[in-house]
Amino acid sequence: MRNRPREIVLGTVAILASVVVFIVPFVFIFLTAAKTPAEAAEFGFSLPTEWAIWDNLTTVLTVRNNLIVRAFVNSTVITVLSVALMVVLAAMVGYVLQRRRSRWNHVVNFFVLAGLIVPPAVVPTIWVMQGLGLFKTIPGMILIEATFGLSFCILLFRAFVSTIPKELDEAAWIDGAGPLRVFFSVVVPLLRPVMVTVVVVQAVNVFNDFTGPLYFLPGDDNATVQLTLYNFQSQTMSQWNLLFMDILLITIPPLVMYIFFNRQIVAGMTSGAVKG
């Protein structure tokens, strides 16, 4: 009870800090998105004198034959499929790497770490994709995103599997379960917290990726949301109101995700982070 006043002060400070750090920029985006071009170019933190939010919204959505709607569809497909691929593959690899000790472990670990450290080379990657006939296609982009994210996911899964008692696997073995049954029926349900972490972190990563689609997925039919931001910006003439409206639209999906999965995200992060 003695600590009450101090807690209240601390809590208030924390709330104020988060308002300044998160809410103020968001309000600024919203207000600028509702202004006319001339007023938006002043970058003032003020209410628009003339609300143009509906006009701006329809302009942004219909610009260049609904380019942004198309971009949202593309981004969603790429994000969902590549994250699904990452979760399935990384969970399997992480499980095997942690449970089964063999002399291949060092080799596999080396390549997992190499995947984190070695930067992707653009032109050779494009040659490979051209050879496979996957360049400028959505499946090709999904594979690239999955490859870039896989190493990080494997590390997370491997760390988390070490917190699952080996006795659970052994009990299942004794009951007569095969390797696949052990993995899918016993281990996967226990991996849920770290799966949520991986899904959220990688979904935001893939959704926000700019350079990947820029180089590996050219062409207007393949546009992704981050690339559409450049439609409203250039050196001497920028339509800031439309740019901020586009930012507002792009911010919404990750925001909704955080609001709904808030609890699982925090749980997943804390449970996976303790043991190495």
């Binding site: 260049r64 653009v122 350079t211 820029l214 180089y215 050219p218 062409g219 207007d220 690339l227 450049y230 439609n231 250039s234 050196q235």
Partner: peptide, 14 residues
């Protein structure tokens, strides 16, 4: 068919 890409440094590399 029209395609677009960003200008600036990104555009140069692309």
């Amino acid at each position: 068919t029209l395609n677009t890409q960003p200008g600036g440094t990104e555009g140069d590399n692309l």
